[in-house]
Amino acid sequence: METWRLITTWGAQPSFNLGLDEALLESSDAPVTVRFYSWKPATLSLGYFQKFAEVPAALDARSVVRRFTGGGAIHHDRELTFSIAAPLAHPLYRDSLPDSYARVHAGVARALLTLGIEAKLRGESKLASDREGTGMCFHKSSPLDLVWDERKGVGSAQRRTRERVLHHGSIKLGTTALEGDIATAERVAPRLSPEAFAPALRAAFEAEFGVRLEAGVPDALERGRMKELAPRFLDPAFLRRR
């Protein structure tokens, strides 16, 4: 059975979170690496290509960064954030982009089912959480998104190099003032913390992907690269590049 590394960091700074994810994307000799994490302070992250001016919430959030993955803005609060970095040729990511999303989302849906939430891929239906003009990830849905209660409940995006893929996911345990009426775990599991949800997600990933997740830490090279990459996410010029 394949063994993947699991790095868990609760309440980390935004520049650490994004710097470490980017270092793991570059870490070509690393095993498949899953991260479970949360943010302190709660932070709004813009998608890589988003225009700052097209996300009105960026003016309201106390902490704002730009991700290196695409998609819309996410307010990282009341959520478990995860990432999975693996080679492009790995069975998790090979074939088309929709195939890779379907595989990752099967793992997430399995974890949500342990809470009693039946999450499904959106398909062609419109959602009650769809909203124009906010630039927020949870207000814009695609057929690949995981939904329940007719609302989007998991935000996701990928970054792909010629060698590796990093998939970002935000699983909403509760909503935030910036995101409003979206799908969350709150209805079935009030005040569920990411720390408390993590064991179910870990078990679901292991069962769905047929792997063992072994707790680990970044190695010295990855830590060094993280320290080099992190400052970009604090740079106002990068935040306002578009």
Binding site: T69, G70, L97, A157, Q158, R159, R160, T161, R162
Partner: peptide, 16 residues
């Protein structure tokens, strides 16, 4: 060398 980036509906990819 990576010369640019392209975003599809669900991923950002490097161009070489």
């Amino acid at each position: 060398e990576s010369f640019g980036e392209i975003e599809s509906v669900k991923a950002v990819s490097d161009l070489y």
